[in-house]
Amino acid sequence: MRDGFDRFAGTRSYITSPELRHAVNVAVALGRPLLVKGEPGTGKTLLAHAVAEDLGLELITWNVKSTSKAADGLYVYDTVRRLQDSRFGDKDVSDIRQYIRLGPLGRALVAERLVVLLIDEIDKADLEFPNDLLHELDAMEFEVLETSERHRARQRPVVVITSNAEKELPDPFLRRCVFHFIRFPDEAQMAEIVGVHHPELPKKMLKQCLERFYWLREVPGLRKRPSTSELIDWIGALVAAGLSPGEVAGELPFLGTLVKKPEDVEAVAQASGRARGGGYR
């Protein structure tokens, strides 16, 4: 791992802005969690992978669901297995520790080496979830109640938290985070990103695709605007079908990879009708 402040420089497959790199480095230097927000498909989750890859650290992922509890992230005590094991007396159940299973946060805190912990989509969980994590993220320690063992992180793990802004996060939680909002990439940045995934793509085709893509994003009344990952899939489909730039300029082939709601397909049809100066079809 590199020393000093400017540790994270982005990876070859993950293009970052200077501001995002700076935010990551500030979070690492201050030992604070990095909270990343942004439109879906702007690579919030991939950021943690890129940070881990670039710094050469292990990545531990915690996929938060609506039923996730903060305590489960630390550890789960498997009572049932212990009771089962105790039935016939053929196993030694006196050591509770073998029935304690660490969760992602717990593993990150007891890790021997520095790790990257990704807490993905924190806003999916219950309202109180972020608040329940405050102590562990602040003090970087926890206690296993059943064994009275205290674990304290040797090094503060690099914590990356993503949120889709489905729910507002509590203020005390936000205050402790380094915040970064990933803006939707502009055309130049996007060309770079697409170049990573489709290096063979001819320049003319790329330009045509991006033009259509950004036009599509601005279609009035669109409920779900297509994202980066959808653009990459779309170009993949175009390449596989061997279409030419001219064919992309007129129609929008494989529209289904970009626009997924029936209302949106309708909106696009109307807009492209207007763009051609006549009715659709």
Partner: peptide, 28 residues
């Protein structure tokens, strides 16, 4: 202040801007 004291702004105003922004702003 801690970030500044540790030189995380890289002695540039741009660095200061981006440091202050990621620490002081909590919502887009």
């Amino acid at each position: 202040v801690e970030g500044l004291a540790r030189g995380l702004h890289g002695s540039s105003l741009m660095g200061f801007y981006s440091l202050a922004r990621c620490l002081l702003v909590k919502d887009e």
